[in-house]
Amino acid sequence: MAEQTKLEPPKPETEAPDELAGSEAPLLDHLIELRKRLIRSLLVIVGLLIACFFVAGPIFDILVQPYREAVAPQPVELIYTAPQEFFFTQLSLAFFGAIFLGFPYLAVEIYGFVAPGLYKKERKAFIPYLIATPIFFLLGAAMVYFAVLPLAMRFFHSMETGEISMLVKVSEYLGLAMTLIIAFGLCFQLPVILTLLAQIDLISSGTLKKGRRYAIVAILVFAAFITPPDPISQIGLALPMYLLYELSIWSVMWIEKRRAKTLAAAEGEGTDTTTTPT
């Protein structure tokens, strides 16, 4: 007899559209969440901008204080050469105040967007960096306000002669002060960023030590690009950045030692499971 072949039932078609829809849904949710956080951040910055515009005078007095201390006992004389210049300078002051005051909120929004993709243990590890971010930003701003800016203004005023005097435009001085404060505040995030990268195994202390010479060159180029063309400002930014780089190496080494102790303890607990014969 001829061997009869059994007909197999047709295989169900794979539901590709449902799988694609399932993969697109998380992406769409992330985009919606990002949109909400961007809108909230923008509203906060705009609100702070409006509020700071009405207190632009006190902000101006605060930023001019290092200049006053640099040229004391002489009075500070700032000028503007266009009718609309001081108005736009007040807008710049308001925007600077909004960014400065809103920086912690922006950091919280970034953490809130990233946190759902982290494990519970990783969220706890991320919180110290969230706290350290505004602290290091304030340290950088304080260094500009109390050290770098007064030294730079003294250096500029020392170049005056009996026939040549320096008349400072209000927009240029405030632009210099605000640029240095924001630049130093961001540059002081270097230990936070490098330590966070070490926490997720993207860099190591050995890599940072080997790249020290390249880091020095990059720091000098960055300082020359971001600061005015005077040695005081450039050294004032380059030297702290290099010290922060060395601090980052020590911080990464501490993380590596702590991770090695944790792994050794885990391996010890795993190998200690001996069974006694009955």
Results as ranks from 00 to 15, higher is better:
104 P>M: 01
105 Y>A: 04
106 L>R: 05
106 L>C: 11
107 A>D: 00
107 A>H: 00
109 E>A: 15
109 E>Q: 15
109 E>P: 06
109 E>N: 11
111 Y>E: 04
112 G>D: 04
112 G>S: 09
113 F>D: 03
113 F>Q: 06
113 F>E: 06
113 F>H: 10
113 F>I: 04
116 P>Y: 09
117 G>N: 11
118 L>C: 05
119 Y>C: 03
120 K>R: 14
121 K>M: 10
121 K>R: 13
122 E>V: 09
123 R>I: 10
123 R>A: 07
126 F>A: 15
126 F>S: 14
128 P>K: 13
128 P>E: 13
128 P>F: 11
129 Y>T: 03
130 L>T: 12
132 A>Y: 04
132 A>D: 02
133 T>Y: 03
134 P>H: 04
135 I>S: 09
135 I>W: 10
135 I>C: 13
137 F>D: 01
137 F>Q: 00
137 F>A: 01
138 L>Y: 07
139 L>H: 03
140 G>H: 06
143 M>D: 04
144 V>I: 13
150 P>M: 06
155 F>P: 05
155 F>T: 02
158 S>V: 01
159 M>P: 02
159 M>V: 04
160 E>D: 07
161 T>S: 12
162 G>H: 11
162 G>N: 13
162 G>Q: 12
163 E>D: 10
164 I>G: 02
164 I>W: 08
165 S>T: 14
165 S>H: 12
165 S>F: 12
167 L>F: 05
167 L>Y: 04
169 K>W: 00
170 V>I: 15
173 Y>F: 13
175 G>M: 08
179 T>V: 07
180 L>I: 00
181 I>L: 15
182 I>N: 01
183 A>G: 01
184 F>A: 15
184 F>C: 10
184 F>S: 12
185 G>V: 03
188 F>R: 04
188 F>E: 06
189 Q>E: 14
189 Q>R: 10
189 Q>D: 10
190 L>H: 06
191 P>Q: 02
196 L>F: 14
197 L>M: 15
197 L>I: 10
198 A>D: 05
199 Q>V: 09
202 L>S: 05
203 I>N: 06
204 S>W: 08
204 S>D: 13
204 S>F: 09
209 K>S: 12
210 K>W: 09
210 K>Y: 08
211 G>S: 13
211 G>C: 04
213 R>F: 09
213 R>A: 09
214 Y>Q: 09
215 A>F: 02
216 I>T: 12
217 V>S: 10
218 A>C: 05
218 A>L: 14
220 L>T: 12
222 F>V: 11
